[in-house]
Nucleic acid binder design. Structure first.
Lengths: 260, 260
DNA sequence: TATTCGTTCTCACTGAGTGAAAAAGTATGG
DNA sequence: CCATACTTTTTCACTCAGTGAGAACGAATA
């Protein structure tokens, strides 16, 4: 018995990251058994690897014996995308102070809009997407902006893929989306009315970098404010211009930490 | 030739994290050769492992062929310490808006004060420690607060260790530090005048959680404002109280993601 | 006390991982 | 243009680090 029949083609590295990936998907702390089943690895292997990872501080053990993402990983990860976050932060804070509404800045990551930073008040917090979370490009105002100004082939291949229907209002018709994206480029902003979550709406504008779309800046608010969304446009455009100015001298490469 | 003489006692996991650790220490993107020499691993091994890591998106390759921390790692890491950051953010923003000075919130991590979040204006930014950076406890106002309210044995063992002299003004005499920490507990705040960096000073107060010291909130400003630092005290104490209230219902465990 | 479920430890086997060295690629300079 | 120096990538024969079924241990629940 024992030995031999290892899962072929999966290196140790692969297994370590498979374990970390489990935490990406689930919130909160996990037990050993959960990590094992979620990652598809044998318990004993999981056990050994988790031990190693904990030793490096990338995972941590809670007093209840569960495991969660370690602060060391967070520390290390601050290096990624630092420049954009640091440059944009003061401006999105100003924008929040000015409007009192939740402000988000996102970038395109594959087929998603990834929230890079957020400014919000003490009350309104929870309803909007968290920093680090993703949503499909076609569903959010920010995502639609990112897609609208992206190069033709990116837009094409995105619309080829599956277009999830998050709410009854999500636009999922490729033909209609093409038209909408064209219109967004014309008018310079995108709207999303209850297309992500019932009761929420948003307006977003592009943030350019070296002539290409770099990020998207948006305001998310209660759906009842939908008719008045456009009044945020001047503030959004002004803030976007400031962020563009602040990031102008930073090479695109190091802005996000992705070659894109 | 070949094979055989592998570095004994170092597992694959260890090597993978040794590579990631290299990025923890150095800023900016690194070449293959740099990663190899910095991590102390053979080039070929480094090459193979880096390939694997990139495949998982934890590292990314720039167009210049260098490597840097990947956005995927950042995404994953957002899970750690989320609760404290999200609860504290609006309040430190308010505090910044009120004072116009750079606001920092830090927690104790081993022998360091780790910056968990920061609020600052567009201009004043660069001079203060970045989010994710560490400084020895005895040097910063926030660190001294974290140490002052910590349990006796932590304080003792910290003072046993080496006390780095960051500037001529850094307090490094253990006896004097014991007195200073006692005084900090009495008066409820700590000061640091050019003890971290020439030209900078700070004032910090504790943030408690379930009766223990949980974090420290501070304001960093130009050294010329040192005589007037105490005027920030009411605002700091008020903000600290708000953060305490906002985090009261969150178990200490999940607040930071560390069992501590 | 028995049962169940999760965690930790054991151990014999072997192919995944190893790293020196060669090959391919890239920058430098004469 | 070729020579020189350096970095990245590939190769490959060897072998020990990693493996995972299973046993042992521990902690709840019935």
């Amino acid at each position: 018995m024992a030995g031999g029949s290892r899962d072929p083609g999966r290196g140790v590295t692969s297994k370590v990251f498979a374990i970390l990936e489990v935490f990406e998907k689930s919130d909160g702390a996990l037990t050993m058994a959960e990590i094992a089943s979620q990652s598809g690895l044998p318990v004993s292997t999981t056990h050994r690897l988790v031990q190693d990872i904990v030793e490096w501080g990338m995972l941590e053990r809670t007093s209840t014996g569960r495991y969660q993402v370690g602060i060391r990983l967070w520390e290390l990860a601050q290096k990624a995308g630092r420049q954009l976050r640091e440059a944009a932060r003061p401006w999105i804070q100003d924008l929040f102070a000015l409007t009192g509404e939740t402000v988000l800045i996102t970038v395109r990551q594959e087929r998603d809009s990834l929230v890079v930073d957020r400014a919000h008040g003490a009350k309104r917090a929870a309803r909007t997407s968290r920093v680090g979370s993703r949503l499909p490009l076609h569903s959010t105002a920010m995502g639609k902006v990112l897609l609208a100004y992206e190069e033709e082939w990116v837009r094409q291949s995105y619309l080829q893929g599956p277009l999830a229907q998050l709410t009854p209002a999500t636009h999922t018709n490729p033909q209609r989306l093409i038209e909408e994206l064209a219109q967004i480029c014309e008018q310079g902003y995108a709207l999303s009315i209850e297309e992500v979550r019932q009761g929420a709406c948003a307006i977003a504008v592009p943030v350019f970098h070296t002539g290409r779309i770099g990020a998207s800046l948006g305001i998310v608010t209660d759906a009842k404010n939908a008719p008045h969304l456009k009044r945020y446009l001047p503030a959004l455009l002004g803030t976007s211009a400031q962020i563009e100015r602040a990031t102008r001298r930073i090479p695109l490469e190091t802005l996000l930490g992705a070659a894109r």
